[in-house]
Design a protein around this nucleic acid. Sequence first.
DNA 1: CTACAATTATTGTATATACAAATGTAAGAA
DNA 2: TTCTTACATTTGTATATACAATAATTGTAG
Lengths: 148, 148
Amino acid sequence: MNVEKILKTDKKMPLESRTLIHLSLVHNKVGDIINSTLRPFEVSTQQFNVLRILRGQKGKPANLSTLNERMVTKMSNTTRLVDKLILKEYVDRTVCPSNRRKVEIRITEKGEKVLLQMDAAMSNAEKEILENLTESDLKNFNELLDKF
Amino acid sequence: MNVEKILKTDKKMPLESRTLIHLSLVHNKVGDIINSTLRPFEVSTQQFNVLRILRGQKGKPANLSTLNERMVTKMSNTTRLVDKLILKEYVDRTVCPSNRRKVEIRITEKGEKVLLQMDAAMSNAEKEILENLTESDLKNFNELLDKF
DNA sequence: CTACAATTATTGTATATACAAATGTAAGAA
DNA sequence: TTCTTACATTTGTATATACAATAATTGTAG
């Protein structure tokens, strides 16, 4: 990915701005690939993330705040995100008996099943996205990301 | 930025997935800072980008496809993005006389003026975002981004 | 010249997201 | 108890974005 070519400019950009633009371009490219990987399953990236988090709970239900902590979205969106997953019967939501302000969200059998299929597709997508990076590149890259 | 801490998990993630999540987290953080930097000026990041591109044209008008090429948005959104900038009187749009399918979009005096103020704010934001990265980090980082 | 295809931009519509306000529940003080 | 405050989630609303359909103009084959 060449920034100048994509932006169709030959102007010399300051390294700082160039870095942030570059980051954005890469993020977009990655996002596009992930979106189109998940499209056949009719879930968004965020919905996929919710499903993964719920599976990680290993039966233990998650409430909205927990989901929120581990995601990028805002609270209000998480509610509606879960609404959509419920419609697809991938998760269920019940009021928490010990504290009725809270909700308990769990992945369903059906949810687990489709999630497995998504995993396979996503794993391929990841390989495709990162095909030009060696393991040492990846480590290096993560270290740099840590500095942000 | 520590991925595991942010996701509040102690699970060992595969390096590949971790990298993509890490990238997303950093991108979000950067986006948040940029958004709040631009908020006082009541423009979105995309609107800011349009203004910068138009200034780069140095008087030469840009049409929608040109803007599009240099941005991440879709065509239809660019139309509405420009609509909003016109409302603020930061740009103007006229039908291209030589090819009436096209439009000519220019930054106005007023637009140039506020853009200068935004530049100053953004330059500070950039410094803040990148304060922990050395010049060699930045070069290194850009090289790695090129591999995506 | 006419008909059809290609180009450029806009509009319609559904979905997504941000932010603030509202709802319902719990916990603590007077 | 009742009042107040804090908590967890949901709803309302404005704005943003994606994608498909449409409109307007130009280019071109016959």
